[in-house]
Design a protein around this nucleic acid. Sequence first.
RNA 1: UGGGGCGUGGCCAAGCGGCAAGGCACGGGAUUUUGGUUCCCGCAUGCGUAGGUUCGAAUCCUACCGCCCCAGCCA
Length: 570
Amino acid sequence: MKEKKETEEMTNFIYYMIKEDLEKGLLENKCVHTRFPPEPNGYLHIGHAKAILLNYTLAQIFDGKFNLRFDDTNPIREEQEFVDSIMEDIRWLGADWGDRLFFSSDYFDVKYQFAIRLIEAGRAYVCDLSQEEIRNYRGTLTEPGKESPYRNRTVKENLDLFERMRNGEFADGSRVLRAKIDMASGNLNMRDPVIYRILHTRHHRTGDQWCIYPMYDFDHPFSDALEGITHSLCSIEYTDHRPLYDWIVDNALELFPEAVKFRSRQTEFARMNLTYTVMSKRKLRRLVEEKYVRGWDDPRMPTIAGLRSRGFTPAAIADFQERVGVSRADSTADLALLEHCIREELETTAPRLMVVLDPIRVVITNWPAGKKEEIMMENIPGNENAGTRQVPFSGEIYIEREDFMEDPPKKYFRLAPGKEVRLKGAYIICCEEVIKDTAGNVTELLCSYDPQTKSGGDTSGKKVKGVIHWVSIEHAAGVKVNLYDNLFTIENPETERDIDFISYINPESLEVYEDVPAEPAVAEANPGSRFQFLRKGYFYLDPLAAGNEKPVFNRIVALKDSWAKVKKKG
RNA sequence: UGGGGCGUGGCCAAGCGGCAAGGCACGGGAUUUUGGUUCCCGCAUGCGUAGGUUCGAAUCCUACCGCCCCAGCCA
């Protein structure tokens, strides 16, 4: 990943909290140690990127450590496929976990021992209530719960039952292990939470070794303690779980001190939403399953895989997260900010190319027949190191259909009958005649060029306001272009109540141009590299389509278009 | 009507009793062979509301209002 961030750049409350912990010596002789704990049951999205980058960056800033730990305590939901994709995504983002890749399931054995100690201390018991009974006994938001009739079993009986649970003597759902806390607590999480359940399900890592599995609230704090995590960051909905987190760690410290590397503390921060998209796993899955997108990695998806195939860069995503910041308030970041970040990066790094998306033929009537001229163009204006390239120019070219108007408004600087415009890097041309088909559609423009106006050596003294891009027809290479736009038409499709978010899908979120003329230099472009199509936007040469007949370019983001604003205002 | 969290400009977000940072967006102007970039300028008499404390309040106190989360043997 890029160099460590200047600490001055990080100004969020978690950064200051850690800094204070360090100053007060609260970490004793430990270094800052964070972790990212994904459950391997789905794809990561840009909201996860916030958590990954926060944890990783914090560890970097303070010279600490960062663990990747898969939270795989529920064998029913988890699969190896997701472990692989998650690791790929995190690696791509640049968060390096070194040799600290862990799985919650690695510690099932110690966790079992810890559960036994809890039982021995009289702080956990085996409960025979059915799932429904447990729910009823729990009470409601406004009424306290009732104690389970099994709450006061003897330690001996609990130990025996728990062992038999582990040995597979009981059916799924018939018994659970519960922490004995407080059935009257206003915090439902403290009403004797279930900490182990019976699940005769094969686990993706431990196989059939276990038929009882720990619950998150028991597992997570203890895993943190085992790994010596100093700062356990999580999203805001876990705030209610913090007392339970502390209960577990305190008990571990008291009953199983030799297993605890550090008494970690949980700190919550708000998750991020993004405008013009949805973030919930359920909704993303629906988009995939109902084929509104081609898959989890569709370039319109807010998944890490989607952003990657769209052409976004890890640096732009990190910059975006940095600018969004971290707080405890619900927030929806503006997609415009993410777009700004990628444009800012690509402005100085992406070589330019001329491609005409919607071509109209231009014949330069006074151009010597058959003559070809090589035009030298800068790859990245203002950056000499990026070099130059030759672009062939001839008497028949394509220009963008929208760069010509038969009856232009006042502020239109492009081509129009009798008007002049500069062809980028080449000459100034003047539109002499408009040719139409029988339906009245413009099919071709007859123009004249002024030999005095060659770029770099213009002796005409002419000043034209408009400069347009072009491609020589004879020398053009064909490319396929995918124009991506927002997947949804409204800013917050997720928060609209009573209306199915599917109805806000943007029918024009993908526009495909099968064969579009591009300057011949495209042939040398490397798959996976990014370009600016002059005046159009930033594009990513799809590496997945590398074998195709034509190169495939995905639009990452369009260039800002102030003309569109002028037009709208009239 | 139980518990918890949060309310600072359109979107984020600093601020922690001394008189509202910054970014994006937006508006205006300059430069420009990308209507891009860059560069200037503008953009909260106001910090959910109402009271109170104080010489002084976004910051402290009180009450109220609004939004979010919690009743999985999910994480």
